[in-house]
């Protein structure tokens, strides 16, 4: 029974993180940009969504979707620091992430009653309903069930996946892919490749923020520390997904990333069963990630999380 509920939790968490992983797929796999600002934009999405709902009285869905723009702005800032001011990829990510820690704290102060800046607060109440809260289901005459939440999350994730897939087939999407693989060609086509980097980072962090907003809705609370470790989690999801499913031709990269997020989250949840105190959780986490990479390296000879085409090319 405990195993069953852990699986349910893992699935919910995995679907929530799938949106995060899809965002990082854009920055890491498409643009070849290891973006550390993710640790800051994830809670930024959560706090913005919470403010929209608590302060502005917005319904949950528009609040979640609007939080996209908060991430968009932060991601664009990372891009501008890198492109316009020549700050290295890692450092521009770190700068934005560090700055965002204060921004989210200040925003949290707007909504906590006692001004406790790191407080975890709940908006589970009769009047305000989260995306997966009771009121919506009640209005349909059904009870809140875990599988319903999973179905809702799944629908959301599939829509995000389709949007990204379609976007990458457009001309501007092609330019993003070209920017990550051969910047010189983008320049020779008469376009400023830096602008595409900024655009890609903005979009990527937009999805990360949406994931943060979903997370807040799923657990009915906003946690200021929810950002820590999200870069690793997202990269792990992307790499696991794309390595495990790379041999199956019909699985698109985006689908593989979603599976990667679910697998990783399930593993994280099962680890809690092993280590109930949570002291060794992060260590087990790291060991698991390393083992998956080593195991995968043995099978496929690659553990990079690059797109299938890029991998095919580098194997040549």
């Amino acid at each position: 029974m405990l195993f069953f509920s852990t699986t349910i939790d893992g699935l919910q968490m995995g679907l929530c993180y799938a949106v995060l992983a899809l965002g990082v797929y854009i920055s890491y796999s498409i643009l070849d940009f290891p973006d550390l600002s993710v640790d800051g934009t994830f809670p930024l999405g959560g706090v913005c969504c919470t403010i929209f709902m608590l302060k502005l009285g917005m319904p949950a869905l528009p609040a979640v979707l609007l939080s996209f723009f908060a991430g968009l702005a932060a991601g664009a800032l990372t891009g501008v620091l890198h492109v316009k001011f020549n700050i290295s990829k890692l450092l521009s990510g770190i700068i934005v992430m560090t700055g965002l820690l204060s921004v989210t704290l200040a925003l949290t102060k707007l909504i906590t009653r006692n001004g406790q800046t790191t407080a975890i607060f709940s908006y589970r109440s009769e009047s305000i309903d989260g995306l997966f809260g009771g009121a919506m289901f009640k209005s349909l005459g059904i009870e809140v069930k875990d599988y319903l939440i999973i179905a809702l999350l799944l629908a959301f994730v599939i829509i995000v996946k389709i949007v990204i897939d379609l976007f990458l087939k457009t001309k501007i999407g092609y330019m993003l892919r070209a920017t990550g693989d051969n910047e010189k060609l983008v320049i020779s086509l008469g376009k400023n490749s830096g602008n595409y980097k900024i655009l890609g980072l903005a979009l990527a962090n937009g999805f990360v923020a949406v994931s943060g907003a979903l997370y807040a809705n799923l657990y009915m609370q906003y946690d200021n520390t929810s950002g820590s470790g999200k870069v690793v989690l997202a990269l792990a999801s992307v790499i696991i997904g794309m390595s495990v499913f790379s041999k199956i031709r019909i699985v698109a990269d985006t689908t593989a990333v979603i599976f990667g997020a679910i697998i990783y989250s399930l593993c994280l949840n099962y680890l809690v069963l092993v280590d109930s105190d949570g002291i060794y959780l992060k260590l087990l986490n790291a060991v698991m990630f390393a083992l998956i990479l080593i195991f995968n390296e043995k099978i496929t000879g690659m553990a990079s999380g690059k797109s299938r085409h890029k991998r095919a090319v580098s194997e040549k």
Binding site: F167, Y174, H309
Partner: peptide
């Protein structure tokens, strides 16, 4: 060329040169 993109994708990128790359 862009190594990770197919021939057709590469050609369509080049063919659009001089025009805006939109959605």
């Amino acid at each position: 060329t862009v190594p990770s993109m197919t021939i057709i994708e590469n050609l369509s990128l080049a063919e659009n040169k001089g025009k805006p790359y939109l959605l």
